[in-house]
């Protein structure tokens, strides 16, 4: 998986509306938190995506935009976003399947989906922090929020 100080590979992926979103859209504007995750529709309440969605106001305060990435199609993301009332964009790493996850080193070849991983990318497009969680464990936001705090301190 990509580590600190690596340039973050750019990507073009479809959001739930079928529009193209690029990592470079946010360059020099926002810090970006990428949430790679296995799939929509995890059968629990308080799944990772719903939790981060509820925490979005905290990321807004930290000048960071959240982007979720799974191998589900944008149609699936659209339904999931509406059903779970998700407040950030979910992107479809759908064709070629898992291509972006592969570039970030977090594609699970055996399972055929993205591993559960978090990346913090600063405004210059550099990976500042990354974390790989076990598939079955929600990572929580503490690590990435700490990394954002650290980033703020180094930029002062």
């Amino acid at each position: 998986m990509l580590k600190k100080n690596t340039p973050a590979p750019d990507f073009q992926l479809l959001n739930p509306e079928g529009e193209v979103v690029s990592l470079s859209d946010f360059k020099n504007k926002k810090n970006v938190v990428l949430l790679f995750y296995p799939a929509d529709w995890s059968p629990v309440c308080g799944d990772e995506i719903s939790l981060f969605s509820q925490m979005k106001p905290i990321f807004d305060k930290e000048d960071a935009v959240l982007l979720g990435i799974s191998v589900d199609s944008f149609f699936c993301h659209k339904a999931y976003t509406a059903h779970r009332k998700i407040h950030f964009q979910l992107l479809a790493d759908f064709e070629p399947k898992g291509e972006v996850a592969r570039q970030y080193g977090v594609y699970n070849e055996k399972a055929g989906y993205n591993s559960r991983a978090l990346f913090l990318i600063d405004k210059s497009g550099t990976v500042q922090w990354s974390y790989l969680a076990p598939d079955e464990v929600n990572p929580g936001a503490d690590g990435v929020l700490d990394a954002l705090e650290e980033l703020k301190e180094t930029n002062v």
């Binding site: 939790l51 929600n138 929580g140 936001a141 503490d142 700490d146």
Partner: peptide
Amino acid sequence: DFESGARSGVNGT
């Protein structure tokens, strides 16, 4: 409370 939970690594309820 909510923000302290987020910063403490609450990952579900």
